[in-house]
Amino acid sequence: MAADLPPSTSLQPPTNKRFNWRTFPWWLVAIGLIIAYMGFRIISDPAYTNIFEAILTGLGTTLMVTGISFICALILGLLLGLGRVSRNVLLRNISIGYIEFIRGVPILVLIFTISFAVVPALSKGMGLDPSKISLIARAIIALVLIYAAYIAEIFRAGIESISRGQMEAARSLGLTHAQAMRYVILPQAFRNVLPALGNDLIAILKDSSLVSVLGVREITQVSRLSVSSSFKYEETYFILTAFYLTMTLVLSLLLQWLQRKMSSNVH
C-alpha cells in the first residue's frame, strides 16, 4: 500500500519562471485587448463616453444586489446543505424538496414568481403592505432564494467529500455530532468548496442582469433604458458586455489568487 507517503506537498506551481509559449495565457491577453480597445473607444469617442457614463449609474446597484444576494444565499445555502445531509427525516426532506423545486424551474421564471406572487402573498400573510416592498428588495429576495438551493448542493458535496473516518475520529473523542460538524467537518468542507462558491459568486453577478425584468436599475436595465431613447444599439451593448466581462474576469483572477494563497499558506 502506498499509504505512508511522504508529507503531502502543497499545490504550488513549479518555480520555473522561464517563458513558455505553450502554457502562456494567450486567451487572457486577447480578452484584455478587447477590454482595452473598449476603454480606448470610451475615452476617445464622445458617443461612447456618454453611454459609458449612463451605464455607470447602474453599477452600484449591480454590485449591491450581487453582494447582498451572495452573502445571504451563502448563509441560507449552508443551512439547507446541512439539512440535506441531516439524519432527521423531516429536515432532510424539506431541504431536498426545496432544492429540487428551485432547480427544476428556470431562474427567469422564478424571479417573476417570487417577486410578484410569493413575496406579496407572504407579506400579506405577515400583515405587511406588499406595495411597500421595493423592487430591488424583491430582486434580492428572489436571487437569495434561488441561489441558496444551488449553494446548498455545493455544501452537501463538500460535506460528503470529507472521509467518514474524520467524523468517526471526532465522535470517538466524545464530541457531539454538532461539534464534530462545526469543528472538524465544516472547516475542511468549506475549504474544498471555495472554488465552487467562487463560481457561484460570478454566476450571481451575471444573473443579476435578469432582475432588469423587474425594472431594477442595474446596468442591464440602465442600458435598455438608454437604448430606447438613443437607438445606439451597437455602442450600448458592446459597452454593457465589456462591463460584465471586466467584472467577471477581475473576480475570477481574484479568486484564483485567493485559492493559490490559501493552499500555499495552510499546509
Partner: peptide, 9 residues
C-alpha cells in the same frame, strides 16, 4: 485508527 484520522486543518 489505521489511517490516523488526524484533523488536517
Amino acid at each position: 485508527f489505521q489511517r490516523f484520522e488526524l484533523f488536517p486543518h
